[in-house]
Computed example of a mutant assay.
Amino acid sequence: MSAKTWDALVKELLARHPVDGDRLAFLRARFDAGLAWVHFPVGLGGLDAPRALQAAVDAELAAAGAPDNDPGRNGVGLGMAAPTILRHGTDAQRRRFLRPLWTGEEVWCQLFSEPGAGSDLAAVATRAVRDGDTWVVTGQKVWTSLAHKARWGILLARSDPDAPKHGGLTYFVCDMTAPGVEVRPLRQITGEAEFNEVFLTGVRLPDDLRLGAPGEGWEVARTTLMNERVAIGGTPLPREGGPIEPLVRTWRERPDVRTPGRLDELMRLWVRAEAARLTAARLRQQLAAGEPGPEGSAVKLTHATLAQRITGFELEVLGEEGLRHDDWTLRRPERTDVADRAPTHRYLRAKGNSIEGGTSEILRGIIAERVLGLPR
């Protein structure tokens, strides 16, 4: 950790950079002071400090009115790309990508799933062919969140078609502005288009955008996947935060929807939501000791099933009123923030929770094998 204490560094940052001044300049200075990810190395936005210290740093800066990096806008970058680059990237890659990623200057997307390779990610068919100091990438990706806003993408491609499917993969950082990258919107059941198809046609990526060794892409991707599941299901929440929040709010504000039978179900869902929130908090504490493990799969699975059950019960409580949905306009949302949307939107959007970030079926297999020790 820095020779200065974290609170001294916070005071110094606030003294040198007014919170009501240039927002980007403040965020850059915060990163350079090691107050972005305190558990990251010095010089890369951190202090080599325990991860648990981050909450205190964030609270101190929030109390001072300091701007944050709007984490919901760059969830893939912060939750998945950054830990992967830190673990598998070169020094030059860490220096190039981590600072503008954390400040939000560069948004990231995830180029993993394909029309024929979603749950079985190791079956990706997108090809990466080496041509001297560059790689020529051709293929199609799907369900790519925020690809239309992304500057960079984390990309898994097949570099050796003759190797076993887990062994012939290579992991890249993809320049989303490169010639041959085409992004098309995917309209969802909600009427929105937060996801995309991405077509890669002869995209040339220099070798210095490769993460890890050729053929070792699966090991790099596992780092991304483990962090993805924690990012989706393990987001810090206040008490009664997340999917349960609008349901509880409706119950308190609408006496006309209350019945004894519904109260029993509401309490069951509230207890499950609180148990899930506390379990996720415990998981984040365990992360201070190392990389995410298979426990993240359990947290993400619980998040998906609980969100669907809560939103379904919310429609049941509201009856016909809950079925109204007038917002079918094609939208390009910057984030998936459903707490202030219509109940039908929450219900429909929750259906995707059991697919994104690893399907519930795949997660149950991981839990069975790697947590419970059951045979394959």
Rank of each mutant, 00 (worst) to 15 (best):
I154E: 06
M80Q: 00
L169K: 00
S159L: 01
V57S: 00
A33G: 04
P333W: 02
T5W: 09
R187K: 12
A213D: 12
A3N: 12
Q54W: 04
D133W: 00
G43K: 01
L205D: 02
A298Y: 07
G373W: 10
G75C: 03
M80D: 01
G34R: 03
A82I: 03
L27C: 15
S2W: 06
T223K: 09
K141A: 12
I362A: 14
D70G: 00
L266Y: 03
L266S: 08
D20V: 14
V137Y: 03
A157T: 13
D32I: 14
A147H: 01
L269Y: 04
D120I: 09
M80V: 02
T329E: 06
R376G: 12
E316W: 10
R332K: 05
P260T: 13
T305N: 14
G180N: 13
V230E: 02
R96P: 04
A66S: 07
Q54N: 05
A3E: 10
E291C: 09
L318N: 03
A25E: 10
D208N: 14
H303D: 14
A163H: 02
E265R: 09
V338Q: 01
R158D: 09
E240C: 15
T259V: 05
D58A: 11
T134N: 08
G168P: 02
V338Y: 01
F199A: 12
K165H: 03
D175K: 01
A66E: 00
S360T: 11
Q188H: 12
A8H: 12
E314S: 06
W37V: 14
L111I: 09
A62V: 02
L323K: 08
I310F: 12
T329D: 05
L156A: 12
Y347D: 06
S297L: 07
L263S: 07
G319P: 05
R94C: 15
R370A: 10
G242H: 07
H148F: 12
V181G: 08
A368L: 12
G365A: 08
E274C: 07
K141W: 04
T134S: 13
A52P: 00
A289Q: 04
G322A: 11
I244K: 08
V137G: 08
G319F: 05
R370D: 13
W108E: 04
L111P: 04
L146K: 10
W102C: 13
E219Y: 05
F195K: 00
H345L: 05
E316L: 13
F97A: 14
L78S: 04
V299W: 03
D207E: 15
A193V: 04
T134C: 15
E219D: 11
E114S: 13
G43Q: 05
D22I: 15
G358D: 03
D22Q: 13
L27F: 14
P343C: 10
T344Q: 10
R349D: 03
K141P: 05
T305P: 02
S113P: 06
K351V: 00
Q110F: 06
L61F: 07
P206V: 14
T138H: 11
A64Q: 02
W143F: 13
L225D: 09
A273C: 07
L111W: 00
D162N: 08
A33Y: 11
P161E: 05
G212H: 12
